[in-house]
Design a protein around this nucleic acid. Sequence first.
DNA 1: GTGGTCTAGACCACC
DNA 2: GTGGTCTAGACCACA
Lengths: 128, 128, 128, 128
Amino acid sequence: MEFKDNEPIYVQIAALVCEKIIIGQWPTGQRIPSVRDLGVELEVNPNTVMRAYDFLQTLEVLYNKRGVGLFVADDAVEKVKAHRKQEFVAQYIPEFFKQLFLLDIPMEEIARQYEAFKKEQESTKIKT
Amino acid sequence: MEFKDNEPIYVQIAALVCEKIIIGQWPTGQRIPSVRDLGVELEVNPNTVMRAYDFLQTLEVLYNKRGVGLFVADDAVEKVKAHRKQEFVAQYIPEFFKQLFLLDIPMEEIARQYEAFKKEQESTKIKT
Amino acid sequence: MEFKDNEPIYVQIAALVCEKIIIGQWPTGQRIPSVRDLGVELEVNPNTVMRAYDFLQTLEVLYNKRGVGLFVADDAVEKVKAHRKQEFVAQYIPEFFKQLFLLDIPMEEIARQYEAFKKEQESTKIKT
Amino acid sequence: MEFKDNEPIYVQIAALVCEKIIIGQWPTGQRIPSVRDLGVELEVNPNTVMRAYDFLQTLEVLYNKRGVGLFVADDAVEKVKAHRKQEFVAQYIPEFFKQLFLLDIPMEEIARQYEAFKKEQESTKIKT
DNA sequence: GTGGTCTAGACCACC
DNA sequence: GTGGTCTAGACCACA
């Protein structure tokens, strides 16, 4: 897998995991891939995967059954959503509005583009 | 001034300068503060300001009269807007849409909040 | 049963067994549950129980009658108490005092809380 | 420096830093040793020091001036004390009481030992 | 097998 | 100079 280089890899992995949890690909209560396995799959060092898992453990999205593996917490989906939403509202939105305002981009255009984006998403979802 | 810590300070300073140019606070053709002065004002190392200015010179938003100082280019406003818009559309928007989609936030809510934001901006503009 | 995750499970099981011996729930000379039975009861791997039993055998708190099972040693209570007390004084107390000192917690408060704790213990003991 | 081997080194380093902050050896607002320097002093890898510093940054006890170094937060002392006290009450105290109760150790003995401990502490303090 | 800790060494952006 | 990221590889306790 290819990563953006303006953000640490482990952060991107954490985000990836969160998405898998949100969309239900890694269900609640289930064991997730070991750091070694995911490391091989993503072509990164197991330590890097661990750092991502570590972060999600402090968020209590994952928990550890020792000697067994890491598992998705029961309320992981809500926690992830809450965390992401908070970040979104606190950081993304203000910056977004500022840019829109300074660049004189009408909200209608954004809304139109978003409709197109949503359609695209749903069509790709069906394929998967 | 306090800076966000998820972005290099010099980038934030460059953005600040761009905004001053867009809103006309630093008009085209006019000399801008020295790195030392702005460094003192923002409480950062002059080198950091220098780096921001350098960056804007490569974008040809600022130009250098040797021994005199840095000046705002004639077509600075258009250049800045073009650059920012390109960045905004290419990087910001896709990520923004993705979050909106994953978190099930309706576009209508965003639009509503933006109206409030615009009103606030205009009222503070008058004060300044 | 749920275990603390800052200590190996087998150590916690060993401690649990010791307590049962101290309070007389598992009297001296008596056979104790098999690793399988206790494993089922505590919802852990039998191997983990085995490890706890092994540890207590090296302490000579338990002894093995081959083909029959594990039994509580005759002087188990004294041995356990001696062992625990030694550990308590050597490791726990110094750390405890250090914390108390750094955090400016008066000994009187601790003593008061302990009285409350004792009362609670005795009242629950009656119920059981 | 020598570390206990029943606890990760980085945790012990974090605790060490906290103590230095509490007793005022590393005052509020002041820069602390670089990861490299402290690594040399404690004879551990800089990465290990960093992990300790990292942890204290998430607790907002330390903060980062980028390219400059790490600094002790303004309210570091209170934060550290609050954090330690909470841990102390939630984990240490219950275990402490339980042991005292099971081992029939009178509170008076503990209190007496603590007095001795305090005197020793204060006499060593004078030397330093 | 699992996660976790630690080291050594490299590279980076930032100030 | 600073912190931060990443890798490779070793070792460990735990289950």
